[in-house]
């Protein structure tokens, strides 16, 4: 690192007031894409939530607030709570494992590093569904994991490893962990480790340097990791469906039930809208936090 750390951290000079027309034109296709295929469908889903349902899976004429009122269904809080805690726990574990993984990936000797990153990405070569079904075989009551655990005396022969919230949590962590590792690794790779040396020179322990210099330095990546893990977790449908038991339903499963077996599109739309709002809330918080952290010239002052 030849450049001074502070100049590396500085955000690139932006001049929003001097946007030229051709920049608009360049942005137009992606804006159009977002508008037509993301914002418009979302608004349609929101509006269907205010329509009455008909008995045959259609959307009736006129407008109503009945569907919104029916969200007060006494059975929902348990499902919402389960969705929330599973998503939060998945995010927390993914961060706890992802940060050290990203750190060691970035610190690994260059000849190992590419192999290790490759190994992180390799699972993506296999279909998501196939990997979940592989878990079913691993956790099968007569499968390998179970046999090892029983042999070690860690579980008794009547306990089931599958079809409980624990199995859902395990498979969700497995699925989303690479999404947490990759952004953290990308940031950790660019991090200037001389700052950690400087911190230890100034008397900080290694842990203190890690906590007060490294973590704030990759703060943006941590936010990204939280977003890319937490948001898809909230919308999980396949994982609780395949490895979850009779009491592992999440909001995604309820939406599927409403749309398919109950033939109630407005209700499915209302639940989807609720989910979208639940996703937007952390996004806005993160966006605000990111803006704040972007404006600061971060780590040097904080480490002092």
């Amino acid at each position: 690192m030849k450049t001074a750390p502070s100049s590396v951290r500085e955000p690139p000079a932006r001049r929003p007031d001097r946007w030229r027309s051709h920049e608009w034109i360049v942005t137009l296709p992606s804006l159009g894409w977002l508008l037509a295929l993301f914002i418009a469908p979302t608004l349609i889903v929101f509006s269907i939530a205010f329509k009455p349902a008909d008995l045959f899976g259609g959307v009736g004429p006129g407008w109503t607030l009945d569907t919104l009122r029916s969200l007060g269904n006494p059975n929902y809080p348990a499902i919402v709570w389960r969705t929330l805690w599973l998503s939060l726990a998945t995010t927390a574990v993914c961060l706890l494992v992802g940060i050290p993984c990203g750190y060691y990936l970035a610190r690994a000797p260059i000849r190992w590093r590419n192999t290790l990153v490759m190994l992180t990405v390799v699972p993506f070569w296999t279909s998501f569904l196939v990997r979940i079904f592989a878990w079913k075989h691993l956790l099968h009551p007569e499968g390998p994991v179970r046999r090892v655990l029983t042999a070690l005396g860690l579980c008794d022969s009547a306990a089931t490893l599958l079809y409980n919230p624990g199995a859902v949590l395990l498979v969700m962590i497995y699925t989303y962990l690479p999404f947490a590792i990759l952004p953290i690794y990308a940031a950790a790779e660019k991090f200037d480790y001389q700052l950690i040396e400087a911190a230890t020179d100034l008397g900080a322990t290694r842990w203190r340097a890690f906590r007060s210099v490294f973590l704030p330095g990759i703060r943006v990546a941590i936010f990204t990791a939280v977003l890319v893990v937490f948001i898809p977790c909230l919308g999980s449908f396949v994982i609780p469906d395949v490895v979850g038991g009779p009491s592992a339903e999440m909001i995604g499963n309820k939406i599927a039930q409403r749309a398919f077996s109950d033939r109630n599109l407005p209700h499915a739309a209302a639940l989807s809208a609720l989910l979208t709002l639940a996703v937007l809330a952390p996004l806005i918080v993160a966006w605000g936090a990111r803006n704040r952290s972007g404006r600061r010239a971060v780590p040097v002052q904080e480490a002092s």
Partner: peptide, 21 residues
């Protein structure tokens, strides 16, 4: 009954009963 069930399922039960799950 639900307390004794592994899950509610329409498709995978076929593999499950075949494999002894």
């Amino acid at each position: 009954w639900k307390k004794n069930l592994a899950k509610f399922d329409n498709e995978q039960y076929k593999n499950g009963i075949a494999s002894g799950e």
